[in-house]
Design a protein around this nucleic acid. Structure first.
Lengths: 108, 108
DNA sequence: ATTAGTTAGTTACTTTATGTAAGTAATTAT
DNA sequence: ATAATTACTTACATAAAGTAACTAACTAAT
């Protein structure tokens, strides 16, 4: 009946942050530039999806990709100003989790 | 090689918030208790998934479900203390979106 | 020169998640 | 008796994510 009376900016932001892995990619990049394989192994997602997410985040102006033509080639992903501005969100999630998420027995 | 050296509480929290629709359900409930069909129409997700999400959130102690045996029966979903504690996260996403998300031309 | 190794991906195929639409149960209104 | 409402569930279709093997460009070793 309704189909969204919510703010479209907010919905877009939420849609982005609600994509699987996006939050963890940003969290990892908040501690500095990272390479593809470093993200892959620290987050534990498939290369296929990581590649997809990094492209999306680049298209959204949140992540930038820098190629160092060394040997073998090194490519670093880092946050733009827009991406760095996401830090308070990640910090709040971290804070909430420390207070409210139990560690043992999968919280059911 | 690595398989997560991240804090497990943080990862759980992020995993939950990164599920599609979860953030918007919480956002809607932050403005007070809501009924199933109200959430369905304001968010624009399928009843199948809404039902699934509400059960998950209930199991995580974030949402509570209250039955009013009126006629027709009324069921209200609302946030627990743990759920209300998510407000700062949602507010930060809102703030970020107001500053950084463009409205027109799907941000590509 | 051939084989193996590295990084940053991509491709093909499978499994899981989500969407769509119809159905159910309890009740009231016509 | 038929239709309507709310809060779901079920069956089936499509989209997203996981898995594993492959590619391209290069180096290092045999």
């Amino acid at each position: 009946m309704d189909e969204s009376v919510m703010c479209p900016r907010f919905q877009k932001a939420m849609g982005m942050m609600s994509q699987r892995w996006t939050g963890l990619v940003i969290y990892q990049l908040l501690s500095g530039p990272k390479r593809f394989c470093a993200l892959e192994s620290s987050i534990g997602l498939s290369g296929r999806v990581l590649s997809e997410r990094l492209k999306d985040l680049e298209n959204h102006g949140i992540v930038k990709r820098v190629v160092f033509p060394e040997t073998p080639v090194r490519i670093e992903y880092s946050l733009t100003e827009k991406g760095l501005a996401l830090e308070p969100i990640v910090k709040e999630i971290e804070k909430w989790s420390q207070t409210w998420v139990p560690v043992e027995s999968d919280s059911l």
